[in-house]
Write a protein that binds this DNA or RNA. Sequence first.
DNA 1: AGCTGATCATAT
DNA 2: ATATGATCAGCT
Length: 223
Amino acid sequence: MRPAPPGTERELLERAVALAGLTLQQVAGRIGWPCPPDLRRNKGWSGQLLEEVLGTDAGSLAEPDFRTLGVELKSLPVDARGRPRESTYVCTVPLESSAGSWEDSWVFNKLRRVLWIPIEADPAIPLPRRRVGAPLLWSPDPRQEALLRRDWEELMDMVCLGELERITAHHGSVLQIRPKAADARALTWGVDASGDRVLTTPRGFYLRSRFTAEILQQHYIIP
DNA sequence: AGCTGATCATAT
DNA sequence: ATATGATCAGCT
C-alpha cells in the first residue's frame, strides 16, 4: 500500500505535483483510505494521508519525514486567499538538555529543507472536497534563517535558565513555544530557575502563520 | 479576525 | 510518557 520512499528530491516533487488539484477524497481513494467528514476527531488526518501517499520513511522519529533525502513534509491549511489558517508545528522543545547549537537543533534540522503542501481549509468546504495545492520545496533564505535562529536562541536561553513558566506564545517573532500535549494535565520534566527538576507542561516549537504566509507569497501561485 | 492555550489521534 | 500528524475553541 505505502509506496517506497522517493529516491531523489525530483522524484518526491513529481509525486507531489501529481496530487495538486485533487480533492482529499480522491487522494485518500488512491490508497483505499476513507475520508472522514471533518477533522474534529482526527486533526492530523490530512498530514498523515500525505505521508502515506508520498512514502515517508521516518515514522515518528525526531527526524525529517524523508530521512534519506533530509526533507521534511508539512501540510499547510490555507484559506480562500491562499493564506495559512494555522501555525505550523515543528518539533518538541527539549526541556532538560543543555543549550547546544542552532546547527544541531531539531528545529534547524527539520526546517533546512521542507516540502510544503497547501491544502484548502476553508470551513465552508466539506473535508472530502478540499483540494490539495501545488507543492513547494523550500529552504530558509539567509534572512529567514537568521530570524529563526534568533528566536530559537532566545527561547532556548529561557528554557535553559529555568524560565519556562515565563515563556508564553507571545515570545518569538517567527518561532514560538506553545503547549503540546494531550491536554493541560499532561506533565513532563523540566528545569526551574534553581536548576532543580520540575514537572511542567510539554511544549512544542511552532512557526507563526505570518512566517509561512511569507514563504507561500514568495513562491506559491494559487491554482 | 488573529492569536494563544488546549486538545484529538496514532505509533513506539 | 515521548515522539509524530495537526486543528480546535475561546479570548482579546
